[in-house]
């Protein structure tokens, strides 16, 4: 495997395993609102894994190797994509299992897709941010984002439990509507997201090439 990919993937794999192990298992064992809440932590886990990977990265060293910036950028984007793709596959698998109990429905599948495609777009943006502004600026941004994300997720959980009127994201009108044809909806969402992701990749390559490798 490509050495850059191998080195960085350690952090993403670790992030994924801890995510699924710590949080994902609740989707298997608990009742609703597990499927509502657990996926909300996914983007937070992704950018935490990215922060750990980038903190350890040495672009100045990579620049000396005969590896074009284009390739480095693509490798990093593949990691983001893979993280979300594997998470999506695992969570969808668990959802299909729980459909038997009636704890997950078709809208759940769409909801999971929405969360995962958001994650890849969010991840791409943060990665580009790191190349553009450097880790010294992005680290606190990521820190704040993670804290905010966790806080929002926790607030959401609390409100779901105690406020009867509090809307569940996975039961929003549009999600329910798309849930009418969950696989088709998911496919379309994924296709759209991949197009956007590719556009972000082009941008990312340009940003990386112009960066000073001062990370």
């Amino acid at each position: 495997m490509d050495p850059i990919l191998r080195r960085s993937s350690f952090f993403y794999v670790t992030a994924l395993i801890t995510y699924m192990g710590l949080m994902g298992r609740f989707m298997l064992t608990r009742d609703w609102p597990a499927f509502e809440v657990i996926p909300l932590f996914l983007p937070v886990w992704l950018i935490s894994g990215m922060a750990a990977s980038e903190h350890d990265e040495r672009y100045a060293f990579l620049r000396m190797l005969p590896v074009p910036d284009r390739t480095v950028a693509r490798t990093k984007f593949i990691l983001v994509l893979s993280f979300a793709a594997v998470a999506w596959a695992l969570m969808t698998g668990v959802a299909l299992v729980r459909m038997g109990d009636g704890l997950a429905g078709s809208p759940t599948l769409v909801y999971l897709t929405l969360v995962c495609v958001s994650a890849i777009l969010i991840g791409a943006c943060y990665q580009i941010g790191i190349w553009r502004y450097g880790l010294s600026i992005m680290f606190p941004v990521i820190g704040v984002s993670v804290a905010a994300g966790l806080a929002l997720a926790i607030i959401h959980v609390a409100n779901l439990k105690y406020a009867d009127e509090w809307p569940a994201l996975s039961r929003l009108g549009v999600v329910e509507w798309l849930g009418g044809a969950p696989w088709i909806s998911s496919a379309v969402l994924i296709a759209l997201a991949l197009l956007a992701f590719r556009a972000l990749l082009h941008l990312g390559v340009r940003v990386k090439a112009a960066s000073e490798a001062h990370l």
Partner: peptide, 8 residues
């Protein structure tokens, strides 16, 4: 070992 594969 990391750098070697990249060089021709």
């Amino acid at each position: 070992r990391f750098a070697a594969p990249y060089f021709a």
